[in-house]
Amino acid sequence: MLIDLSGRTALVTGSTQGIGAAIAAALAGAGARVAVNGRSRESVEAALGSLGAAGGEFIAAPGDITTDEGARAVFDAVPHVDILVNNLGIFGAAPALEIEDEEWRRYFETNVLTAVRTTRQYLPGMVERSWGRVQNIASDSAVVIPAEMIHYGMSKTALLAVSRGFAKEAAGTGVTVNSVIAGPTHTGGIEDFVYELVDRDLPWDEAQRAFMRAHRPQSLIQRLIEPEEIAHMVVYLASPYASATTGGALRVDGGYVDSILP
């Protein structure tokens, strides 16, 4: 399948590393002009250096979109977007009864409200142009709430609802809105998380296997997903081939969620 996104501008939030960087690289590889976002100009410039080495057109869009000031800086840097990928998110383990109110708010504001804020900014222009793609990177934790991080699961469940609601708002306009349910993925952040739950003295390969056996035994591929595998789905959903897919929650979870539907 040849996907050509030439002439399209994409914004990927939280794209200086991990899944976000893989998505930015894949979209650029398909011909899109990609805005790379991170909290600081330094992190964005470093990411542009590594991403640009593989080719493609990238622009800097630094700014902390959890704040009004940071969001405005991003919107000023990228006034018009054809493809919006809301990837920014935080996660971490905590005993359920020890999560304070402020931490609940922080997860909701970072993982949910940032997606609402950017969608509210860019969706009207997409509707006016009769073409656009909004994608929210969710998680298997939205469906299978982990006991060790229910505040994270809650935020990703809310993100599924946000996606479905905005898809209805964009009904009949040529704009699609979807969620991508990512399963346990191999990123730097997940390595830290794995070592919070298994013996830190284990080599990485053994630690990964121990984590999957103890905490993600439902995985049908029995390994962590690579970020590029998430990016493949995002590129497809950004393409004209996915024009009839909207309001959905598409799974790249390695079969982790034990359900035919999300």
Rank of each mutant, 00 (worst) to 15 (best):
R106E: 02
R106G: 01
R106P: 00
Y107I: 06
Y107H: 14
F108Q: 13
E109N: 10
E109S: 10
E109D: 15
T110F: 06
T110N: 09
T110K: 09
T110C: 09
N111K: 07
V112C: 06
V112Q: 05
T114H: 06
T114D: 03
A115Q: 03
V116D: 09
R117D: 05
T118G: 00
T118L: 15
T118E: 12
R120Q: 14
Q121Y: 09
Q121N: 10
Y122G: 01
L123C: 04
L123Q: 05
L123N: 03
P124M: 12
P124Y: 11
G125E: 11
V127L: 13
V127P: 00
V127H: 01
E128F: 02
E128T: 12
R129D: 07
S130C: 07
G132Q: 04
G132E: 10
R133I: 03
Q135N: 13
Q135Y: 11
N136C: 12
I137Y: 07
A138M: 05
S139V: 03
S139A: 06
D140C: 07
D140G: 07
D140N: 13
S141D: 14
S141V: 11
A142R: 03
A142N: 09
V143T: 13
V143P: 02
V144Q: 13
V144M: 12
I145T: 15
I145M: 12
P146F: 08
A147Q: 14
E148I: 08
M149Y: 09
M149T: 05
I150E: 03
H151C: 04
H151V: 09
Y152R: 06
